[in-house]
Amino acid sequence: MIEVRNLSQSISKHKILDNIDFSVAKGEVVSIIGPSGAGKTTFLRCINLLNTPDQGVIDFNGKVINFPRVKMKDVLEIRRKTAMVFQQYALFRNKTAFQNITEGLVVARKIDKERANEIAENLLKKVGLYEKRNAYPAELSGGQQQRIGISRALALDPELILFDEPTSALDPELVGDTLELIKNVAATRVKQAMIVVTHEMQFAHDVSDRIVFMENGAILDEGTPRQILENPQNPRIQNFLKSVRYN
């Protein structure tokens, strides 16, 4: 469904992404793991076109973008078929929880208001925050904000959802609930593909069809959770797993 070829980005001579080739099939769940500063977040942002890479190709369902030349029309078209969940939640601070979910639907996708309200109500009930629908982000806890963030992404009914370390800004006791919610989303999804950047190895193991290991802006290895997490062949991956005390 999405195919990335030769993607590179550098900031003042420092290579953040180095010739990345990567693809996700329809409905597939892929986790990206690796040490901090590996370029995982940058890569995810490139897929959502929040960053403009220096070179490379992104092919989204036949819509091809050749970097660094981008047309705003193409960018918007791809963004409207994807959604992203941010590490710092990034809820719109001037909108209520409810408006956060409907904003993209009404303004960007031109869905009529009643339908958008219906979608938002259903999602808020599903994540258990219907009572908080009129609260502003400032009045919500981190865990609640992230659940709204996930709802905002789901509301758009995207073909691809990107999760950027969705739990790493949360207090430890809230991580479990949020991961459960994402697992639930993964289990009940119809056709959506998911890319998850995460430091939670057990979660990655449980939820993913495929795991990608990134280091220094490049993909070092990829395979099933069994291959990468249980029997890693690459010594770098073995070291990394040891350092995060997995197994």
């Binding site: 942002r45 959502n48 076109l49 929040l50 918007l76 963004r79 409207r80 994807t82 959604a83 992203m84 941010f86 710092q88 990034a90 809820l91 719109f92 601070r93 904003e103 993209g104 303004v107 960007a108 996708r109 905002r152 992404a153 758009l156 990107l162």
Partner: peptide, 11 residues
């Protein structure tokens, strides 16, 4: 991040 979030929902 406010720009990012808005762009990511397609605004």
């Amino acid at each position: 991040s406010q720009w990012d979030a808005a762009y990511s929902v397609g605004l």
